[in-house]
Design a protein around this nucleic acid. Sequence first.
DNA 1: GCGATATTTAACCAGTTGGTTGACGATTGC
DNA 2: GCAATCGTCAACCAACTGGTTAAATATCGC
Lengths: 110, 110
Amino acid sequence: MAQTLDSIFAALADPTRRAILQMLLEDDMAVTDVAEPFEMSLAAISKHLSVLSRARLISQEKRGRVKWCKLDPDAMKSASTWMQGFGQFEPVDFDGFERFLECELDAPEP
Amino acid sequence: MAQTLDSIFAALADPTRRAILQMLLEDDMAVTDVAEPFEMSLAAISKHLSVLSRARLISQEKRGRVKWCKLDPDAMKSASTWMQGFGQFEPVDFDGFERFLECELDAPEP
DNA sequence: GCGATATTTAACCAGTTGGTTGACGATTGC
DNA sequence: GCAATCGTCAACCAACTGGTTAAATATCGC
């Protein structure tokens, strides 16, 4: 679990990878489509995806020659759970999505 | 903000730094006391603390020759907020925790 | 003032990261 | 069958990380 948190937080520490996760929030995507908005090589994106995959933040499934990437929220949830040790609970937060959108404005690229 | 998230998640990606944060959850601590349970040099811990400090996960205040380290929940809060876009995680009341920390301050200083 | 204590800085080292290019293995459509 | 598409792998590079030891800087107690 500690090693899991290592890889999850390390994966989240890169703005390109966070942007990829936010793209996947919209829909599952093929590797080539994930790469399209970024100004870097496909190989670089492929590496980023494997980092996300090893951290189990995404899952990947190959169908034909296309590899589909899909968000897997469990890992993010365990990171979030770890962080909850640093705060107290409060009832469901309806502003959450709004604040998320504000953060998204600051994301790099696409 | 994007750069902030970079440094916050990068800081959280190291198990030593996460352990330090959990120690600080109990109480504010001097650098030497933070270092005591770890099997590494004081200089290494000092570096870890400066990473945490640059990420604003802790604040540091020098009183005399002792530098006190104190949790600063704001940074963790923004990371948690970013993550909330990815699931129905329980949100965290970091403001409540901050009030809790302020109460702690009234406790007798070591 | 002086020795002890608290902490940071500098120089260094090995390993990791994030990117590149180019070659390669599968799969598809014609 | 064969050219195009999808994606990874290998080799390489510069920059960063996490650790070390040794020296430097403050401050404290006496």
